[in-house]
Simulated scan of single mutants.
Amino acid sequence: MSKAFTKESDADDEEPAAEPQLPPGAKNYMTPRGHALLKAEFDHLLKVERPQMVETVSWAASNGDRSENGDYIYGKKRLREIDRRLRYLTRRLDDPVVVDPRAQQGIEQVFFGATVSVGEEDGSQHTYQIVGVDEADPAGGRISWVSPLARALAKARAGDVVRFQSPAGMREIEVLEVRYLSDPPQPASAGEK
């Protein structure tokens, strides 16, 4: 059968496995910074990248034979990627719960948005901010609120010792400080890891 009469691929319509997932029924918590980043990405894709790619695909299509036209083939693929990402961002931005850490002053327990300094058993110290699943960056000190570490830290106070199961096995850490900042922590230096 001619390729012209077949669907290109069902995999093109599926969400990529790399997209972070929320637990079923969970609210989509995010910080104002995370919300602004997702909104900016959505606006850029919708108002800049997609129109440029549509123009490129239209130009490539007008050149004739599409089966061997690299600009057309790549352009259509990129349009599908952009549209997939726009659908994903639309779902994420549809009903977010934006929590501003600065509005949580005076809270001594760890909740969403907290910046937590912890001490490891080996004496090293690390600082993490608990953020939404789309803004998590463990290397940058931002962990998702659904991660095992963030769940273990939930409701802990300075001085508490928390045990949790990590990919490396059972770990025990001490909560040294709980703060609510607007800026995420700086990545740990090589000496702290």
Rank of each mutant, 00 (worst) to 15 (best):
R80W: 09
D160I: 11
E14Q: 07
A168Q: 14
A40W: 00
E14P: 04
M53L: 13
D134Y: 03
P167K: 15
H44Q: 10
Y29Q: 01
T31R: 11
S67Y: 08
E121N: 14
D95H: 08
A154S: 10
E19S: 04
D83Y: 03
G191V: 04
D10P: 00
A18R: 06
M1S: 14
S117H: 10
A36K: 11
G140W: 02
A158F: 01
Q52S: 06
A190L: 09
L22K: 10
A152S: 12
K3Q: 14
A136M: 03
R157A: 06
V162P: 08
A156E: 05
K77L: 12
D122N: 15
I130P: 00
R80A: 06
W145G: 03
R78Y: 00
K47A: 07
R87T: 05
E14C: 03
P185G: 10
K3W: 09
Q129D: 06
F111C: 10
L93A: 08
Y128G: 03
D12M: 07
A136W: 11
K47V: 00
Y128M: 05
A158I: 04
E49D: 09
M53G: 01
V118H: 08
K3D: 12
W145H: 13
V54C: 10
E120C: 14
H35V: 00
H35A: 02
R87A: 09
S2F: 14
T90A: 08
A4G: 08
K27E: 11
F164E: 05
G191S: 14
E172I: 14
S166D: 15
L22Q: 11
G64S: 08
R142T: 11
V116M: 11
E121L: 15
P185M: 04
F112Y: 09
V133Y: 01
L46T: 04
Q186N: 05
F42I: 00
L37T: 05
S67W: 13
R179V: 03
A103S: 11
A60M: 08
R163Q: 15
D137R: 11
K76N: 03
P187H: 08
R33T: 09
L93Q: 01
Y88K: 06
D95F: 09
T127N: 01
V98I: 12
M1D: 12
V162K: 05
R91H: 06
R50N: 02
E81T: 01
A11F: 07
A17P: 01
A36D: 14
Y72M: 01
H126C: 11
F111E: 05
A60D: 05
A4I: 15
D83C: 00
R157D: 04
L46G: 07
D160E: 04
E41A: 02
D160W: 01
Q105G: 03
N63Q: 13
R179A: 06
A36N: 11
V48L: 06
R157I: 07
R85E: 10
Q125F: 07
I73H: 02
S58Y: 01
P148E: 13
L38D: 04
Q186A: 10
M1H: 15
S58C: 03
R33K: 13
